[in-house]
Simulated assay, not measured.
Amino acid sequence: MLSGNTKFLQGVQIYLLSRDHSNLKSDFRHGNGKIMVNCIENQPAAELVLGKHVFLSVAEYYLRTKTG
C-alpha cells in the first residue's frame, strides 16, 4: 500500500508529524488501531495501522521489531 511512491510517503509523513501526538494517539484508539488519511491533496486515501505502518514511539517500534 505505502511502498514505492516517495511523494505519497512524504505527504503521509508530513501529515503525521503535523498532528498533535495526543490527538493522533486518541484517533488510533477510537479507530481500533487504524486511521484513514484522506486529506492530502492529489493523493489517494490510505488506511494506516498502528504497529504496522505507524509507531507512536521508538519503544513501540523496538518492541515490535524484537517480537515480530
Rank of each mutant, 00 (worst) to 15 (best):
M1R: 08
L2G: 13
L2D: 09
L2R: 10
S3F: 02
S3G: 02
G4Q: 10
G4K: 11
N5G: 07
N5T: 05
N5P: 06
N5E: 10
T6M: 14
T6L: 14
T6V: 15
T6N: 14
K7F: 09
K7I: 09
K7A: 14
F8N: 11
F8C: 03
F8S: 13
F8R: 14
L9V: 13
L9C: 15
L9T: 12
L9S: 15
L9W: 14
L9K: 15
Q10I: 15
Q10L: 11
Q10A: 11
G11T: 10
V12G: 07
V12L: 15
V12T: 07
Q13N: 07
Q13F: 06
Q13A: 09
I14H: 07
I14M: 11
I14L: 15
L16K: 13
L16Q: 07
L16D: 05
L16H: 03
L16S: 01
L17K: 15
L17P: 01
S18H: 05
R19L: 08
R19F: 03
R19K: 14
D20K: 01
H21D: 04
H21F: 09
H21K: 15
S22C: 06
S22E: 09
S22P: 01
N23W: 06
L24S: 09
L24D: 10
K25F: 08
K25Q: 14
S26G: 04
S26I: 06
D27P: 07
D27N: 05
D27H: 11
F28L: 03
F28E: 01
R29V: 12
R29H: 12
H30V: 09
H30W: 09
H30T: 12
H30M: 14
G31H: 00
G31V: 03
G31I: 03
G31D: 01
G31L: 02
N32A: 08
N32S: 13
G33P: 10
K34L: 09
K34Q: 12
K34M: 04
K34G: 04
K34R: 10
I35Y: 09
I35G: 05
I35C: 02
I35R: 06
M36I: 14
M36R: 13
V37I: 14
C39D: 13
I40F: 00
I40Y: 01
I40M: 00
E41T: 09
E41K: 11
N42K: 05
N42V: 07
N42L: 10
N42H: 07
Q43C: 11
Q43K: 06
Q43D: 05
Q43I: 03
P44I: 06
A45I: 04
E47C: 10
E47K: 13
E47P: 01
L48M: 04
L50M: 01
L50I: 06
L50V: 02
G51M: 03
G51P: 05
K52P: 05
H53Y: 02
H53D: 07
V54N: 00
V54Y: 00
V54Q: 01
F55H: 14
F55P: 04
F55L: 05
L56Q: 03
L56I: 00
L56C: 03
S57L: 03
S57D: 02
V58Q: 04
V58S: 02
A59W: 01
A59K: 09
A59H: 05
A59S: 07
E60G: 02
Y62K: 04
L63Y: 14
L63Q: 08
R64I: 01
T65N: 14
T65P: 03
K66A: 06
K66Q: 04
K66I: 11
K66N: 04
T67L: 13
T67D: 13
G68W: 04
